[in-house]
């Protein structure tokens, strides 16, 4: 197995740094159902980390633990070398973790630009009074943050629809706008929940290119859940495999592909 204790260099020559987030013996229960059982893994700076597994394996629950939506009964989430106390989701967002959802969670009544600008909310500090006067501080802050939002809009090639209400967009574009909103926050860690679910081959290729570009250009650390094996194997540097809430594999795509337990989980085992 690849030794990752001090960081490592990927096959395509990118340097992967220290640990950003570490999950230590996470167990999550809903009443009597154990969604996650004693799982540990780490995410390192600059890498693309995939979490895969069959349906109901606990992948989305894992992502919800990482984004602070669920608090695990046992185990700790370490973020930037410190154990993270149980936080409200909006406090987690302020620490620099952004995410997208499996079922798109955009603000349907707002324009694309407004949606992307909501990604900047954690950075915008002017109070009610300055906002109601507008001229001066609020306007200056709005313009500065608009510039960053526009950079993201440019990057994801959605300039033409920036004033369109989100509710009028097709599915594939909505997914892209959601990614834009997450990126606008300039996150230290980006969590993507099935970014390619329900897309055709071309849209998948576009999205894969965007994910690689984001990682490459902004150096964003990315953790993603995905069902399309081809995509996962091509994109990710390391893969965690889950099945029935347990971790059954962890390593580079090649290692995981040849892991007997993983093959059993995906293809089934012959019973005799």
């Amino acid at each position: 197995m690849l030794d990752t204790s001090e960081g490592y260099t990927t096959a395509d020559g990118r340097k992967i740094g220290g640990v950003v987030m570490e999950m230590k013996n996470i167990t999550l229960r809903f009443g009597g159902v154990k969604a996650i059982t004693d799982i540990s893994f780490d995410i390192r700076e600059g890498e693309i980390r995939a979490i895969i597994g069959p349906n109901g394996a606990g992948k989305s629950s894992m992502l919800n633990v990482m984004s602070g939506f669920y608090v695990p009964q046992e185990g700790e989430v370490w973020f930037h070398g410190k154990p993270r106390p149980p936080l409200k989701p909006y406090e987690v967002a302020r620490q620099g973790i952004a995410r997208t959802f499996q079922n798109i969670a955009l603000f349907e009544g707002m324009s694309v630009l407004d949606n992307v600008m909501t990604g900047r909310l954690t950075q915008m500090k002017t109070g009610l009074l300055a906002q109601s006067i507008w001229k001066g501080r609020a306007e200056k802050e709005e313009t500065e943050n608009r510039e960053i939002a526009e950079k993201v809009i440019d990057f994801l090639e959605i300039q033409a629809i920036r004033k369109t209400p989100v509710s009028r967009l097709p599915y594939g574009l909505k997914k892209r706008v959601e990614l834009a909103r997450a990126l606008a926050a300039e996150p230290k860690l980006l969590l993507l929940d099935e970014p390619m679910a329900g897309m055709n081959v071309e849209e998948k290729e576009d999205m894969s290119r965007f994910i690689l570009d984001v990682n490459d250009e902004f150096g964003t650390t990315i953790a993603l859940i995905e069902h399309d094996m081809g995509v996962v194997m091509d994109l990710s540097d390391r893969v965690v495999v889950m099945d029935y809430g347990k971790k059954i594999g962890d390593g580079t795509p090649d290692e995981v592909r040849n892991n007997q337990e993983v093959i059993d989980a995906y293809l089934g085992v012959e019973h005799d």
Partner: peptide, 8 residues
């Protein structure tokens, strides 16, 4: 979603 992007 509002809470996830940092709205209290």
């Amino acid at each position: 979603a509002a809470e996830i992007i940092g709205v209290n």
